[in-house]
C-alpha cells in the first residue's frame, strides 16, 4: 500500500507544457516502442528535462529523475539496505524502481557522475535489458514499458567531463538546441505568463547574448533564464533589474561582459 502510494507520486498527472520544435516527440515514442534507450544532449535550460516530463505524462509512465553528481554511487541508483527498528529492509533505488514498475529512469547531467557508476546502466541499455542487483543476488528483467534516458550538455569545455564511447554507443541521441525565435517566444510567453511584446523582447535579448561566445561568454542565456526574467517582471520587478538579476548575473562575473550585457538590456527595453 505504502509502496503504491510512493509509486503514484512518480506519475505526472498534470500535462506539462511542452512545445515541440521538431520531431523529437515522434522519435522518443518510436524509441520507446522499440525499447531503445535515449540520450538527450543540448545546452542547459533548453528544455531537456521538461521534455522528459512531458513524455512521461504522454506515455503515462512514472518518471524517476536522478540528478547526477560525482559522488553518486551504484547503491544510490540500484538500492541499499536500511535499518529500521533493529531490522534491515531493502530500499529500491530509482533505477530499480523504474525497472520494476516499467517507468522511465532519467539520469540528468550524466557526465557529472563518475564513469564507474555509469557502467551500471550498460546491461540495461542494450538488448539484454537486465539489471543485476548484487546485494540481493538477483537479476531483474526490465519490462517492455521501462525506458532509460540520459542527458548531458556537450558544451562544457572540461576534458574531464565526457561520456565513454562504450556508454554513448547504446543510445538513440536527440540533439536539443534552443528553440527558434518564434517557438521560444511562445514558450516564454506561456511559461512566464507575460504578454507577447515582452516575451519577444526577452527572446531578442536572449538571442543576442548567445552571440557572445567569441567575446568570452561560455554560454548565452537559456530559455529557462528568459522565463525567470519574465516571471520577475510579471511580479512587478523593474524590467532592467529583472533582466540583470535573472540573465546577466547568472551568466558571468566578468565586469566588462556584465557592462556589455547591461548595455544590451538597455538597448532592447
Amino acid at each position: 500500500m505504502e509502496s503504491d502510494q510512493r509509486l503514484s507520486s512518480f506519475f505526472i498527472s498534470k500535462k506539462p507544457f511542452y512545445l515541440p520544435v521538431g520531431n523529437e516527440i515522434e522519435l522518443a515514442e518510436i524509441a520507446y516502442s522499440h525499447c531503445l534507450p535515449l540520450l538527450l544532449k543540448g545546452p542547459t535550460g533548453c528544455g531537456k528535462t521538461r521534455f522528459m516530463e512531458y513524455m512521461a505524462w504522454r506515455l503515462k509512465r512514472p518518471l524517476f529523475t536522478v540528478s547526477c553528481h560525482d559522488d553518486l554511487s551504484t547503491s544510490d541508483l540500484v538500492g541499499r539496505y536500511l535499518i529500521k527498528g533493529g531490522e534491515t529492509i531493502w530500499m529500491d533505488g530509482p533505477l530499480t524502481l523504474a525497472v520494476k514498475n516499467g517507468g522511465i529512469c532519467y539520469l540528468d547531467e550524466v557526465v557529472e557522475a563518475r564513469k564507474d557508476t555509469t557502467v551500471v546502466i550498460h546491461p540495461l541499455a542494450d538488448d539484454r535489458r537486465k539489471l543485476p542487483i548484487e546485494k540481493l543476488g538477483i537479476i531483474l528483467d526490465a519490462s517492455k514499458e521501462f525506458m532509460l534516458v540520459i542527458s548531458y550538455n556537450p558544451g562544457y569545455q572540461s576534458v574531464l567531463k565526457d561520456l565513454k564511447p562504450s556508454t554513448r554507443q547504446r543510445f538513440i541521441a536527440i540533439d536539443f538546441r534552443y528553440p527558434d525565435e518564434e517557438h521560444e517566444r511562445k514558450i516564454v510567453e506561456i511559461e512566464a505568463e507575460i504578454d507577447h511584446g515582452l516575451s519577444a523582447n526577452l527572446v531578442k535579448l536572449g538571442r543576442m547574448t548567445r552571440r557572445l561566445k567569441e567575446q568570452g561568454l561560455q554560454e548565452g542565456a537559456s530559455t529557462r533564464l528568459l522565463i525567470h526574467a519574465g516571471k520577475l517582471i510579471k511580479s512587478g520587478i523593474d524590467v532592467n533589474l529583472a533582466c540583470e538579476v535573472a540573465i546577466c548575473q547568472p551568466l558571468t562575473d566578468d565586469e566588462e561582459l556584465l557592462n556589455g550585457l547591461k548595455e544590451m538590456i538597455k538597448a532592447v527595453f
Partner: peptide, 15 residues
C-alpha cells in the same frame, strides 16, 4: 568601446 563591442556582437553577430 568595451560595452559597445559586446552590444555590437549582439546586434550583428560579428566581432
Amino acid at each position: 568601446a568595451g560595452k559597445l563591442s559586446i552590444l555590437a556582437s549582439g546586434l550583428t553577430e560579428r566581432t
